[in-house]
Design a protein around this nucleic acid. Structure first.
Lengths: 254, 254
DNA sequence: GATGCCGTTGCGTGTATCGCAATGGGCGTT
DNA sequence: AACGCCCATTGCGATACACGCAACGGCATC
């Protein structure tokens, strides 16, 4: 909608791939070098890009600070965190917290497993949306039409043989999840890893976040993990209650 | 330099304070609402801002992803991480890794203490630059003129009675740190917390990052912490060697 | 010492962006 | 239930602003 802003913002994902010099940025944007320079300078002034000693541009520091502040403003996260830690202490497995936003599901908190095996996931990274338990929980709560539309729009990468293969299967799965109020991912993302998850509901009953427990099957079998489901649901409900209690509709401070 | 981009980027820190509606954004920017709307829309398309159900704007998801990718591109971090974990396992205290960038020092990695006492610090957050051990190490390596100029420009908040009070004292401290090759923060940021840090040097001898060990004096005294200095320096040197070895000048993959 | 490359600058032109004023929709009020 | 208010949204015309060009300068290479 706004040309120069649009171009400037397009530079960010480009630099996310790695440092680039002025010429490269200008080429990728399809603009004159002087134009790219002006945009980069503006980004620089705001701290979003950084100029390396070798003159190439990188993503800058303020980006971290902004992302940090953004995540701190998510009040679900703040409320949920101690609950997640407690759950981790009780069962030892990796705990994830995720939210839905604009066709994406992303982890906003994580408590590492105490077992040496570490999972591949990162706070802030988009989730494998077609297979992750938390993704199913969050999407299952969308209104029917948006759910269907989104399902059609998605890709269905076969991470493993158990990954969700297509939109139809995915929608069936979402219906089941919606019905039963919990979700699993049994080796759909990584062959040897299972997850169970439960939704966190706000005062109006809408799902505001989702949490899950993940463990490799060398540590516990899928059945053993499923046995922890009541514990996960209790935790999720506790978070939901606290969230509804303290924030009836709006943030108290401000 | 570029008006519309400048305005658009000014929205981000504004939203970092908390969600805001269109009118508020327009007011704060000092522009007409229609202008603010166009800027917000562009930011929205790039995923940097998100529209809440209540129509107010928040910082968006892509911001996390960008910050994430940015930090992953910092190859010091990747190399250092296992070393930091090992150090933490050996002594149990909190380990920090920080870099200098554009008049700021920021933490880029952290391994939590195994003791229940948790420090207040966050990855991505700017460091208390006038007192932190890692800050002293990084600034001590700047060329004399820039060091002096920066010292003059800084504020010197008295977090505690032991905080660095002014530029002159700070410059003396930096000279000492530069000389001895390590740094401390003895209760300068929080009364009861001490740190020891060591520089991580690249192939050319320049300081590329700094690391530190932090512990509250209810756990170990300052002297006991100082006794760990050789261990910290060995770790820092090991990281420096590995960094210099694998990346002579550039990233191998790309 | 000469040549090429890349970042940088000043400037005129054209267009993308700005603010205005009017429309529309959602919500609380009387 | 109807009214009125507030806020987001749209179309439009004027102009400030961002664009690309071309020339400069510093740096490294041959």
């Amino acid at each position: 909608m706004s040309q120069s802003v649009d171009r400037a913002l397009s530079i960010l994902p480009l630099l996310a791939e790695g440092p680039a010099d002025l010429g490269r940025v200008a080429d990728r944007l399809g603009v004159h070098k002087s134009t790219a320079l002006r945009l980069l300078r503006t980004l620089h002034e705001h701290g979003l890009v950084y100029r390396q000693p070798d003159q190439r541009y990188r993503l800058g520091a303020r980006l971290f600070a902004l992302a940090q502040e953004a995540v701190e403003n998510l009040d679900v996260r703040e409320i949920a965190h101690p609950h997640l830690v407690r759950l981790n202490e009780e069962c030892g497995h990796t705990v994830h917290l995720a939210v839905y936003e604009e066709d994406e599901v992303l982890y906003i908190d994580k408590v590492e497993s105490r077992y040496p095996v570490r999972m591949y996931s990162r706070i802030g990274r988009p989730v494998a949306i077609t297979v992750a338990a938390v993704a199913k929980l969050l999407l299952a709560d969308l209104p029917e039409d948006r759910r269907r539309a989104l399902a059609e729009r998605l890709d269905y990468p076969m991470y493993t043989a158990r990954s969700t293969p297509d939109a139809a299967t995915f929608l069936e799965e979402l219906a089941r999840v919606r019905e039963q109020g919990w979700a699993t991912d049994l080796g759909g993302h990584e062959e040897s890893i299972n997850c169970v998850g439960a939704p966190i509901r706000g005062a109006d009953g809408r799902v505001v976040a989702a949490m899950s427990l993940s463990a490799p099957n060398v540590v516990v079998t899928a059945d053993e993990l499923l046995a922890l489901l009541p514990l996960v649901r209790r935790t999720a409900d506790a978070i939901g209650r606290e969230y509804s209690g303290t924030t009836p509709a709006d943030t108290p401070h401000d």
